[in-house]
Every structure is written in C-alpha cells, then in structure tokens.
Design a binder for these strands. Structure first.
Lengths: 219, 219
DNA sequence: AATTTACTGTACCGGCGGTACGGTTTTCAC
DNA sequence: GTGAAAACCGTACCGCCGGTACAGTAAATT
C-alpha cells in the first residue's frame, strides 16, 4: 500500500528523466525497470500500458507546476500590494527558480508531449491543454489586475502577453539546451519581465498625466 | 543519379512529417518505406543508419530555414531604408508566413531534436546549435543596426531580445499545438514585433529630444 | 557494351512493447 | 496471529522494429 506508492513514484521519476532526454517513444520500459530495480511484471502492475504511464507523468507534472505557480504568485502578493509590483516580483522569483537549477531546466513535459502527440490518446492531450490554458489564465488575470490600475500601452493584446510568458519559457528551455547555456532561460524570463515593465510604464504621450503609484519593491 | 535524389527527397519529406508528429524515436523506418513505396534495402542504400537520416533531416531543415530568413530579411531591406522599419516589415512578413500555413506550423525540427538529444551523435547536435546561433546572430545584427539610429530603452539586453525571437517562435509553435489554435504563433510574432516597437519608441524621458525619423511603412 | 546507380528480395539477429498467468512475499486490518 | 489484500517476481511467448548481410537486377549513364 504505502510501498506501492513509493515504487510508483520512483518509476515516474526515472521515466520522466528519460522522456525529457530521449522522448517518449524512445523511452523503453525495460530501461526504466532496470534502473528502478523491478521486473516487467512489477511495472505492469502499476501501469496497464505505456499510455497510462504517459497520463500519470502528465498529471504529476501538471500538479507539480501548479504548486510552483501557487507558491510564487502567493509570495509575489505577499511582498507588495501593488499588482504591477507583485507581478514583477513573481516573475523575478520564477527567473531565480530557473536559474538556480544546477544542470539547467530538465525540460517541459508539455513541450515533449505536444511534439509527440500522435503517441497519446485524447485524455493525455486534454490534461496538457487544460493545464496550459489554466497557467495562461493566471498570467492574464495578473495582467488584467495591473491594467485596472496602470494604463497599458496600446498595440499589445494582454491575452497575447500572457501566452507570451509560456512561449518564452518553453522556447527558453529549448534555447538553453540548443545553445548549451542554462542561463538563457533565466535571462529570457527577465527579458519578459522587462517587457511587462515597458508595457505599463508611462508612455511619452502620458507624460503630463498624474503619475501612477510609486513602486515599492522589485528594484 | 537524378532518380536517386528524388527518392532520397521523398524519404526525407515523409520522415520529417513523422518525426514532427511522433518524435524521432517513435518514427519507424518500416513505416517510412511503406509510405515511400520502397523496400528496406532501398532505404539503407540512401542512409546507412537512422542517425544519418537524422543528420540529413537536420541539414535539410537548416538550409530551408536559412533560405526563408534570407528572403524575408532581403525583402524587409528592400521596402525601407530605415533599419527599424525594415526590421518591423521583416517581422510582419514572418508573421504572415506563419499565419498562412493552412494546418498551422508543422513544427520545428530543432525543438524536437533538442528534446531527444540523447538519440543523436554530436555532429547532429552541432549542426542544430550552429544554425540557432546563426539565426540569433541575424536578429542581433538587425537590432544593433537599429540601436545605432534609435536609442534603445534601458533594461533590456539586445542579445536577449534577439534570442527572444527564437523563443517566441518555438514556444509559439508549442502553444499553437497545445491550445489547438494555429493562429497563436502568428500573434506571438506580432507581439514580439510590438516589443521591438516599444523598445525603440521614445520613452517619457526622451520626450523633449528631437524626434526620430518618421516611419515609412509597416503601420 | 560496360559500368555505375538505384534499387529489390530474402534471411536473419537481438531488443522492445505488450500479454498471460501462475507463484511468492510483504503489508495491513482485525 | 491470521487471513486477505497488495505488491510484486518468473517465465514463456508474440509480433514489430532497427539493423546487417549479401546476392541479384533493372535502368540510367558513359
């Protein structure tokens, strides 16, 4: 009972690392069970086939990411009452989180799965797309809160800006790997942060209007 | 001689589609040859193993993309003498290109390969990373040219902005697929374009300085 | 006509995903 | 402590796939 959950977790951990390094199709069950120190029968006791492994991996990844976002948005709100400042803090925390990973970001499961979508059934894809939608929603909500206080510069749709964060992260992971420089991801998140700052900075045309509330934290 | 090149090309086309849909590890040679209407012997006549197929796919992809960038940067320069305007035109052309693809962008081979890097030898990875570096270089050069005329706003490193384009494209492709909306990619490129505009737009602090040359094209 | 190119056909190996099923040990509830 | 459920192990097997080997052949090129 208890031990079963442990083994299951170990399988998932090993499988995730392999999937992120070689792709799902190239991840062999035999390899996973060898590393986990169990037999094939043991594996199929926990997952009835490879697709169920995929679903479990995706669920685990989504829940983990949800927790991270919960935490980092919460801390952002704790450190400032101003929506812009707290969002900037959140972004900085996210950048630090990514930068502190010793070997770079291990990879985004969503990205690997969307690039191998023909391998999975609908349920797996639905979990992924629902998660992406919810994460984008968090960022859009944060941007909307800011826009209620600070007038945004024209020319950019806030929905697109929200999605841009996800793009920058997924793209940043790919670039970090492709260029062999783990710091690219952190820098890209900080670049996105600068975009948010620019977006809500008073434009030239606004110079004579009463200035917005002064910044508290986040340099 | 002539016919051999045709067959080779057909194999590459079929393999690329499969790799982008299922990943390289899950792309079976048997499937490819079945669709191409040749035998396994015929396949191994053209590629001595799967890794050589990967290398050929990567080379083909890189060359194709180089041509596209050549074309789109050239047209941008043709349509305006101003470096900012011509870059904005180039970005708009790229966005249109991506938006006109009927079934959305088929996928970025660089992205699939970096997420399956353990499957390939160094030569393949080197081709990919050299290509990414050269593409980022194009964008950084364009930004430097602009910065020589228009003062950039502080807070963003131009190298990071250049890399951001690649991130937005690769991330945009993933988001387009994940959300099931092919237009996301186009919108993300246009959002990046807006970032460039903001970056070089006169800031509030510059309002009293003589204004920069007026825009010619690219709304 | 000779040679090279571009394949086909056949046979084979080992690894892998997956199934089936019977047996065994560990854990927990009572 | 015992019984039942949980958590595995062992073995045997199937078909697909990557890859090798090698002999043969039709078509294009020289």
């Amino acid at each position: 009972m208890r031990k079963g959950a442990e083994t299951r977790e170990r399988i998932l951990e090993i499988a995730e690392a392999s999937v992120l390094a070689k792709g799902f199709g190239a991840t062999s069950i035999e390899e996973v069970i060898a590393e986990a120190g169990i037999t094939k029968s043991g594996f199929f006791y926990h997952f009835k086939d490879k697709n169920e492994l995929a679903r479990a991996l995706m669920l685990r990844y989504v829940e983990e990411n949800d927790r991270i976002f919960d935490d980092v948005f919460h801390r952002g709100r704790q450190l400032s009452d101003d929506p812009l400042q707290s969002f900037l803090i959140t972004l900085k925390l996210l950048a630090e989180l990514m930068g502190d990973l010793p070997n770079g970001h291990p990879g985004c499961l969503i990205a690997t799965f969307t690039y191998q979508e023909r391998l999975f059934d609908r349920t797996v894809r639905d979990i992924a797309s629902d998660a992406v939608r919810s994460w984008n929603g968090r960022f859009r909500d944060a941007l909307n809160e800011i826009a209620a206080v600070y007038p945004a510069r024209k020319g950019m749709d806030l929905d697109d800006v929200a999605i841009m964060f996800s793009c920058v992260v997924d793209g940043g992971i790919i670039m970090s790997r492709g260029l062999g420089d783990p710091r690219v991801l952190e820098r890209q998140i900080l670049a996105f942060r600068s975009v948010v700052k620019m977006l809500f900075a008073p434009a030239a045309s606004d110079i004579m209007l009463p200035s917005a509330p002064t910044a508290i934290a986040a340099e």
